[in-house]
């Protein structure tokens, strides 16, 4: 008896699940057919969504490229401590050993006064005025300790060392303009690069937020217009017994389709543009190759994430519109 009851219950559940699945498939079908029916509204909504996703894509690429470029430049950066002119490597050795022990120091090198002079002459071999200045100058070039850091943005340890190490204090140059510097050879302080990165991030986030908001509004209005256009149909659906999910579902599917199509278009346009510009970007000193490698290597994942972002924008705006204008 109880076995029969269980079987009956299982059958009812199975039937209910089959009905729910059928209803879901039908809602998808109606959503897709609505997408085809409202050609112009669809094109407008998909276009805006594409622009939004492109901006998100561009923001991501720009941030990655900036980070990579900053890291490349950072690796080439070094820090210099100028010692009294004529200081020998042997004299500087204890300081260099102490520096090498600092946790953020990767390596340390010594440039004697003569090496510095030769380097200067080599670097400025085409500049007669500078070469003449080198021979005529009364003050001699300092000896230099070059320090290469692991984390180029963190100089706190180094600053503290320079201020507290007593051996260094005896050796350090007292000439004006030869105080320890934490700038690299390119003359680009790390904090400038960091501030660029931060500014670019802020602009990216602001542009993304703005376009996501615009996209929300346009899709919200598109769905609102679609609801308005189909009010008789919706009225009829309600009166013949369609439930909320059946009436709202197609609008949600429609919005998801906007997102999915826009994601494919935006990723395509974004990636092709990036590939076309990659040589020029590299010529400008932008480290773009790792970003391109990531995007092409994980293309399916990138498209999937873009689809998800597009779908979320579509679903949220569509839900708001149907909640507000679809009185069921």
């Amino acid at each position: 008896m109880s076995r029969n009851k269980d079987t009956a219950r299982a059958l009812i559940q199975q039937k209910r699940r089959r009905r729910q699945w059928l209803t879901f498939l039908r809602v998808c079908r109606y959503g897709l057919s609505n997408f085809r029916r409202n050609a112009w509204l669809t094109v407008a909504a998909t276009l805006v969504m594409t622009i939004t996703l492109l901006i998100i894509f561009a923001t991501f690429v720009a941030q990655q490229a900036l980070r990579d470029t900053a890291s490349t430049i950072g690796k080439e950066l070094d820090r210099s401590i100028y010692l009294k002119s004529g200081t020998t490597e042997a004299q500087a050795k204890p300081v260099m050993v102490a520096l090498q022990r600092l946790s953020n120091v990767e390596r340390v090198s010594f440039i004697s006064t003569d090496d510095g002079k030769n380097n200067f002459a080599r670097d400025n071999k085409n500049d007669d005025a500078r070469l003449r200045a080198l021979t005529e100058a009364s003050n001699r070039l300092p000896a230099t300790i070059r320090i290469y850091l692991y984390d180029t943005s963190d100089t706190s340890e180094l600053v503290e060392f320079v201020n507290t190490n007593t051996t260094l204090k005896k050796l350090i140059s007292t000439q004006p303009g030869q105080t320890p510097t934490f700038m690299g050879e390119r003359g680009l302080p790390t904090d400038v690069i960091a501030s660029w990165t931060q500014t670019a991030q802020k602009i990216g986030v602001a542009a993304t937020a703005l376009f996501v908001a615009v996209s929300f509004l346009i899709i919200f209005n598109t769905i609102r217009m679609a609801i308005f256009n189909r009010r008789d149909e919706i009225e009829m659906m309600k009166l013949i017994g369609a439930n909320k999910e059946f009436i709202r579902g197609p609008f949600l599917i429609e919005a998801i389709v906007y997102g999915v199509i826009a994601a494919v278009i935006a990723t395509g346009i974004g990636l092709v543009t990036l590939l076309l510009m990659s040589e020029r970007l590299q010529a400008w000193g932008v480290t773009i190759q790792p970003t391109i490698q990531f995007l092409t290597g994980y293309l399916w994942l990138v498209v999937l994430v873009m689809m998800m972002i597009g779908s979320v924008i579509g679903v949220v705006s569509s839900l708001l519109a149907t909640r507000r204008y679809l009185k069921i």
């Binding site: 089959r18 009905r19 729910q20 059928l22 209803t23 039908r26 057919s33 029916r37 008789d232 149909e233 009225e235 009829m236 659906m237 009166l239 013949i240 017994g241 369609a242 439930n243 059946f246």
Partner: peptide, 23 residues
């Protein structure tokens, strides 16, 4: 109040589809 984009058959079937009836 018929669905203009759907055929006679589809309009009638619609009432059964919303009730979850099988194809």
């Amino acid at each position: 109040k018929l669905l203009p984009q759907r055929t006679v058959f589809e309009n009638i079937a619609f009432a059964l589809e919303i009730a979850g009836m099988s194809n």
